[in-house]
Amino acid sequence: MTPYYVVVRPDWTVEKVLTHIRQIGKKSETIDHIYVEGEGHRLIDDLRISQILFASADATVASLMDNQFVSLQVTDRQEEAIALFKQYDRTALPVITDDGVLVGIVTADDVLDIIEQADTEDIQKFGGMESLDLPYTRTPMLEMVKKRAGWLIVLFLGEMLTATAMGYFEGEIEKAIVLALFVPLIISSGGNSGSQASTLIIRAMALKELKVGDWWGVMRKEIFSGLLLGTALGAIGLLRITTWQQLGWYDYGPHWFLVSITIFFSLIGIVLWGTVSGSMIPFVLRRFGLDPATSSAPFVATLVDVTGLIIYFSVASIILRGTLLRPLIR
């Protein structure tokens, strides 16, 4: 907020207003809008400079007023100010107290700085780190390490669960080593779909397109999206195994068709789970008053990696039961 702006009275003539602008206009942040104050310095209207320039010299400010204006409250959050600027396409907005007293203005260039800062913080959080307090080139190395180490440790501990999950299915991997070939494919597909969904939802929340109450509509949409996307990826995986087997480029064994069916249904389940979980995590965080941007792509990918392995080997146990694998009962 800046205190440098042009204020006039309703009983002033246009000629007096122009004289006033010539005297103090250079010190003002902007003269696109002229602010009209009543008794007690209360804001009662704002006028575009064009209204002043095209009015007759003896016309009064009151004759140009319509007593309708847009303003910010001193207690408004930055997000509310940004939303008003976007809604009304203004170069500046006045700031008033609860009593209507004009205390300053906020200009569009200041709002752009705020938007840039907020977007930078969200992008850094979404990359899986704490937001930097200073620009990258001015951030000390130890501070940079500190900002990045916390989330890396959390993600590393989360990925350790992936190793635990693979250890749990060690017997299945030993009996059907071919399943291990597709582990990177499986977990990357789930992580990618989850990251896509979380990115879409977080951005929609930032643009005020979605609220917490919209979660059910989003879930229904993402369920169908996940099924279609998973089916598409699963079909590609099935086609790939079939093609390689038939052309002799790789031998997946006598039960290659069951392996391809396993990949098909596993990808449907994993992509569906990744899409739904990636879209719902931002809603859960917002519901508890946390920043949805903290549900970063690495965080979602790590979560889906672990659960994706469970889905993959569970599907494999069902389809390959009695052929390559024994039932998944321990």
Score class of each variant (00 low, 15 high):
I318T: 13
S225H: 03
I31H: 09
F69Q: 01
F85C: 12
L233C: 11
E80G: 05
G128V: 05
S189Y: 03
A197E: 07
T97G: 11
V74K: 13
D109T: 13
Q87G: 02
H255M: 13
V103C: 10
L102F: 12
E222F: 02
E174N: 02
I201D: 05
P282S: 06
E222H: 00
L233G: 02
T242Y: 13
H20E: 15
S50K: 14
S314D: 06
E121P: 04
W151F: 02
V271M: 04
Q23A: 07
G158T: 02
L233K: 03
A83I: 00
V95I: 12
I115P: 14
E172A: 15
I270F: 00
G230T: 04
T107V: 15
R203D: 12
I82V: 15
S28R: 06
T323M: 06
M141Y: 00
R77W: 00
W273Q: 01
L228R: 03
H41E: 15
G269Q: 08
I31W: 12
G150D: 04
V178D: 10
L93F: 06
L155D: 11
A81C: 08
F283D: 03
A176S: 14
S295Y: 02
S50Y: 10
K26I: 00
L309R: 00
I153A: 09
T294L: 10
G25Y: 13
I31A: 10
P135A: 05
I329N: 12
E130H: 08
L152Y: 03
V306P: 04
G25C: 10
I187V: 12
I311A: 03
L320F: 11
F69A: 03
R77I: 01
E79M: 09
R321W: 14
L179A: 11
I82N: 11
Y250R: 09
K175E: 15
L157G: 14
E116M: 05
L285C: 03
S131K: 09
V7G: 06
D291I: 00
T262S: 04
Y35K: 13
S63W: 05
